[in-house]
Design a binder for these strands. Structure first.
Length: 217
DNA sequence: GCGACAG
DNA sequence: ATCTTGTCGC
C-alpha cells in the first residue's frame, strides 16, 4: 500500500511491524464473494501480471475479474515475496468495483519466518480477511499427512517447536498437500474449512485456478 | 560454516 | 515464477 521500494533489510523490518497487526481470530462478515489472486511474469520477469478472480460463494460461479500489468521492481527473495508480487496484486484489486469478502492468496500467511507472508501482508494492508494457500513449504515442520481429502496435520514453527503456524492439508487424493495458514482475520480452523469449501474437485481452490489462468496459461 | 528457501 | 514433450499413475 505504501513502502514497496525498500531494501531487503528495510522490508524485513517492516514485516515485523505489520506482523503485529495480524488478527488470528475470526472476524468475518457475510461471505458472499471469495477472490483468488495469482501472479505471472512476462518478458523474462520484467513485467508482473497480477490477476484476481472473484467467485460467488458458496456456488463458486464467476462474479468478477481483473488483471494488472506493472513493471517488476523487486527480485524474488525467499521471505520477501510480497514485495515482489504485492504491487501488482493491489493494482488488480483496485480495478474491482468492490473488495471481496475473502482473499485466497498463493503463498503463505503467517507460516513465514517473521509471520508475514503475502496473504497476511495484503490482508493487513487492506484490512480484509485472507488465507495463505501455498503449494510448497517456506518454513516449519510437520508429520506425514493422511491420504484422504480433508486429512491434515499441524505445521509447527520448527521440529520440536510449540507454535502452530499453519496446516498441511490434503485437498485431493493422490496429490501433494497444500500449506494453509492464517492470513488475516480468519482462524486456522476456519481457513481449512473455507479452503475445502472452495476446492470441489482439483488440488487447488477454484478461486486460485481461475486467477492462475488469468495471470498465466 | 552448512543447509533451507512461498512464487 | 519460467523454459518445455512425453510419460507415469490413479
Amino acid at each position: 500500500m505504501h513502502p514497496w521500494n525498500l531494501s531487503p533489510a528495510q522490508a524485513r523490518a517492516l514485516q515485523l511491524e505489520l506482523a503485529a497487526r495480524v488478527e488470528r481470530q475470526d472476524r468475518l462478515g457475510p461471505l458472499r464473494r471469495v477472490a483468488g489472486v495469482d501472479v505471472g511474469f512476462e518478458d523474462g520477469g520484467a513485467v508482473t501480471r497480477a490477476a484476481v478472480a472473484v467467485l460467488d460463494f458458496p456456488a463458486l460461479t464467476p462474479a468478477a475479474q481483473a488483471v494488472a500489468r506493472v513493471p517488476t521492481t523487486f527480485p524474488y527473495v525467499p521471505g520477501l515475496l510480497s514485495f515482489r508480487e504485492g504491487p501488482g496484486v493491489l493494482a488488480a484489486l483496485g480495478q474491482l468495483e468492490a473488495l471481496p469478502d475473502l482473499l485466497l492468496c498463493d503463498g503463505q500467511g503467517i507460516a513465514h519466518p517473521r509471520r508475514l507472508g503475502i496473504a497476511s501482508h495484503l490482508g493487513v494492508l487492506l484490512d480484509v480477511p485472507s488465507i495463505g494457500v501455498g503449494k510448497s513449504r517456506l518454513t516449519g515442520w510437520h508429520e506425514a499427512v493422511g491420504p484422504e481429502k480433508g486429512d491434515w496435520v499441524p505445521l509447527w514453527d520448527r521440529r520440536g517447536g510449540s507454535e502452530v503456524i499453519g496446516a498441511v492439508l490434503r485437498s485431493r487424493r493422490g496429490c501433494l498437500p497444500l500449506y494453509i495458514s492464517i492470513g488475516h482475520r480468519v482462524s486456522l480452523a476456519t481457513a481449512i474449512e473455507l479452503v475445502l469449501a472452495c476446492t470441489p474437485r482439483y488440488r487447488l481452490p477454484e478461486t486460485t485456478r481461475q486467477a492462475h489462468r488469468l495471470a498465466s496459461g
